[in-house]
Amino acid sequence: MRNQSRITFYLLLTPLVLWLGLLIIIPHIDMLLISLRERISFGVYETSLSQYEKALTEPLYLRTFWRTAVMSVLATVITLLIAFPVAYYIAKMAKGRLQQVLFLLCLIPFYVSELVRTFGWMILLRETGLISSLLQWVGLADQPVELLYTDATMMVGLVYTSMLFMVVPLVTTLESLDDSVIEAGYDLGGSGFSVLREIIIPHAMPGIVSGCIVVFMLSLGNYLTPTMLGGKDSLWFTEMIYNQFIVRSNWELGAAFGFMLLVLSSVIVWGMLRLTGRTLKETMG
């Protein structure tokens, strides 16, 4: 009996171990090793920190690194600000069927691939696109307007892509808040704002934090949206990793970039948890 349950335990554990080991741990160890070597000549490598040195001294790399971080944080904040009212409406104000329909509406855009969705934005926003034509027709513009390839457009794309991952955890935590607790807040003299600040937001905090972590990581690691909507001036750090690995076959520098991104996201997530006074355990469990 005891033996049997032990076998079951190991059998259930195997996929997880394989997953973590083959897809996460081993590639990362290899990446770390690659990033720590320098090519002296054909087939000859030496261990050195020169890749990191290059990454941290070249202004283009460094600027893109920080820009990616700041823009990802900004995208997360904007997503939160837009998603919170949406989630509150779905969880607390919509009833019955309407609630299900609204939730489904949030989900529907994710039935198509990210590529198609991004093309959707391009169709709307390009020079000969819908919005440009509309502006001309109304008379607000006298020539075609190019709305693509700016930071703002890229931000729209990032927020749009991450919306669902913020709405879902928020709806879940807000739904678990008893309506009578909100009513009690009003009943005892609270205004709409103070009820939001003292009761609803503290209750929704686990959802806010986990939603923010997911959205932040998705934005930071996003490749398609910045590339397609952001244009030449809006370089994203993932593009640079791609360039090093694929275009320039400089795996050493690419691996170093990859590691920098990993450290960056870990530090920011840790900072986010510290700032909100939560532990990872509370947020995930």
Binding site: S180, V181, E183, A184, G185, Y186, D187, L188, G189, E198
Partner: peptide, 16 residues
Amino acid sequence: PNKRPVNMVFQHLALF
């Protein structure tokens, strides 16, 4: 409700 001189003890108490 937040201005009424009436307060309510809820069925499930609704403590914060």
